[in-house]
Nucleic acid binder design. Structure first.
Length: 592
DNA sequence: GCCGTTTTCGGCCCGACTGTTTTCAGTCG
């Protein structure tokens, strides 16, 4: 069993212990151990075989022996007995917002509620409100939580769908006769959530049946919804539908364009084709009645061997899938003013990274090495400020200690570390660091981590007050952290962008695979207002650094060019950009 | 269950918010 499977089980054991009402520190020990296991850099098999598990902080003799069992045999009697002690439905119930282990245990003990279904029934029968410790409001909240949970099922995060699609495609590519295979649909457009996975393939005629069988029989399939000669649909075990369509070689570009969508984009495209005397569908162009060319005969479109040719035939420059949302892209394509979108390979570093100084999992040095391994020139460190106690916010002494370590690391060649901070914007709009301290950093990210329930007006005022302070560089997670289950905090982005523009500040866009990021909505207005964007993963672990690629998706959907983004600048360029927005730097540096 | 410059027992992060109470438990970040 591999590292992350072990971590998942330890985490589940921690949760089960919470549900059992065990010593909270015991359950926390399991959660901590799970995190530690996830963060192990060397092979877990090696650690087990060399009996060195307990060298890992957070793993003692008990959990160590569980891990040993899991790694060597794939099983653990402790895990099995813990699992069988409680109904599986209780774990499901944890997904309901506002319902934690204590209440789930209470409900289980009092009313034998052991699933979301029985919970809903009891709530509708007004039984929950009568339990001591609960009331009308809790009951309503639980019902609302169940509703929200239902609503979001059926939609899958981009990162999940991408992973599933990659697995199936890898499997299909091994099949005989598969000549072309591409992902289409909203997944190709990199929508933040997708409804299903659309795959498109060209397969030799004689191999079609076996390829279709391979598709419907592949290991990630839960059940087959339909199976035909050219189209099959399956439901994957992770609850998302996946369709495979087979087309002829010469239809492929048309089918790819058609099935990539969006529907609205295609409507505009087909309308345009009609005006030119052609009808457009997934198989190609066909001349329509009354179509006359210059010589009086029917005007035939050129053969299209790729999507670019289709757009060219319609007098348009190529439109990247991410832009096909009927959002002005066809007009821009006609004028030839579409931006050359930022690409992952343009990235030269990132900012807003945490380390073990606050709530990160990896050390400064580990993060620096990881950045270097990604081929980056620099990395911006931004650990939490002191008020963020839950995240081990840094004291002034911690910051000075970190500065020293950064200086030492920067002295060794490799990758440049910027001295930053993620400074809390307190509820009254003040910043968590005094002005004198803010001046010490290379850059300052300010963000909100508390009192989320303010009105939009208050929250906006709070953020703007924090953002406009001297020496503040950029706003962190501007729209809040939008998990599937949770809303962003209320804030007027128009006002915040205006303030950023007025005061010469930057805006960060976040990207994280398990987050529903709508930050792309900010990109175009930010660009138009001349605001620089930073693509930040809000990294807490080494692997988070590579999640900047999700940020690139966000930026692409927001029409950003490389030059609109801080991360694509050279070390020198970043230095200049940071100091351009932070007036103190020149003088301060000269004094040193 | 883990940990240790307070080291084999006793503490383990903490504050805001909500809904429930009448001083606090549960949830969240």
């Amino acid at each position: 069993m591999d590292k992350s499977a072990v971590a998942t089980i330890l985490d589940e054991m921690g949760t089960l212990l919470e549900l059992q009402g065990a010593n909270p520190y015991k359950s926390r020990a399991f959660h901590n151990a799970a995190r530690s296991v996830e963060a192990i850099t060397e092979s877990i098999e090696t650690l087990v075989s060399e009996d060195r598990l307990q060298e890992v902080k957070g793993i003692g003799s008990s959990i160590g022996s569980i891990i040993k069992d899991l790694v060597t045999s794939g099983k653990s009697s402790e895990y099995e007995s813990l699992r069988s002690s409680l109904p599986a439905g209780l774990l499901e119930m944890l997904k309901i917002e506002g319902l934690g282990p204590k209440r789930i245990k209470l409900l289980y003990d009092e009313l034998h509620i052991d699933s979301i279904a029985s919970l809903e029934k009891a709530a509708r029968e007004d039984k929950l409100a009568k339990i001591k410790g609960l009331g009308e409001k809790s009951q309503e909240k639980i019902l609302a939580g169940i509703g929200a949970l239902r609503q979001r099922s059926g939609k899958t995060l981009f990162s999940t769908a991408e992973r599933l699609a990659a697995g199936i495609m890898e499997y299909l590519r091994k099949q005989k006769g598969v000549q072309k295979l591409e992902v289409a649909g909203s997944l190709r457009r990199k929508k933040e959530v997708v409804g299903d996975i659309d795959l498109l393939a060209v397969v030799e005629l004689k191999n079609r049946t076996t390829v279709m069988k391979a598709f419907t029989g592949n290991p990630s399939v839960e059940r087959v919804l339909g199976q035909g000669e050219t189209k099959s649909s399956v439901l994957l075990t992770e609850g998302i539908q996946c369709d495979l369509r087979l087309v002829e070689e010469d239809e492929f570009p048309f089918a790819l364009q058609y099935f990539t969508g969006s529907k609205e984009h295609n409507v505009e495209l087909r309308t345009r084709a009609r005006k030119m005397g052609w009808s457009l569908n997934e198989y190609g162009f066909t001349p329509i009645e009354g179509n006359k060319g210059s010589k009086g005969g029917k005007k035939h479109p050129p053969k299209c061997s790729d999507e670019e040719a289709i757009y060219r035939s319609l007098g348009l420059s190529y439109v990247e899938p991410e832009l096909r949302e009927a959002n002005g892209e066809i007009e821009s394509a006609e004028k030839g003013t579409l931006p050359e979108l930022i690409d992952v390979k343009d990235l030269r570093g990132t900012f807003h990274c945490h380390t073990t100084y606050s709530d990160g999992l990896h050390t400064l040095e580990q993060m620096a090495h990881a950045a270097k391994a990604l081929g980056w020139e620099y990395l911006g460190i931004a650990d939490h400020s002191k008020v963020a106690a839950y995240a081990h916010g840094l004291s002034k002494a911690d910051v000075l200690r970190q500065f020293k370590e950064i200086d030492a690391l920067n002295a060794k060649a490799g990758v440049h570390l910027f001295k930053g901070t993620e400074c809390d914007i307190l509820p009254n709009g003040d910043l968590d660091w005094p002005a004198t301290m803010l001046a010490e950093f290379d850059y300052v990210v300010v963000s909100v981590h508390s009192s989320f329930k303010m009105s939009e007006k208050e929250m906006t005022a709070r953020i703007i007050k924090g953002l406009k302070q001297k020496n503040v560089t950029m706003l962190g997670h501007p729209t809040g952290r939008l998990l599937l289950s949770r809303d962003a905090y209320p804030v007027s982005m128009t006002d915040v962008l205006k303030a950023a523009s007025d005061y010469g500040k930057m805006i960060e866009i976040n990207a994280y695979p398990n987050r529903l990021d709508l930050d792309w909505r900010l990109c175009r207005p930010a660009r138009d207002a001349g605001i620089m964007i930073a693509i930040n993963p809000d990294a807490h672990r080494i692997e988070d650094l590579s999640y900047t690629r999700f940020g690139v998706n966000v930026a692409r959907k927001g029409w950003l060019k490389a030059s609109d983004v801080l991360n694509t600048r050279s070390l020198k360029g970043v230095d200049a950009a940071l100091h351009g927005t932070v007036e103190r730097s020149h003088d301060k540096r000269k004094q040193r």
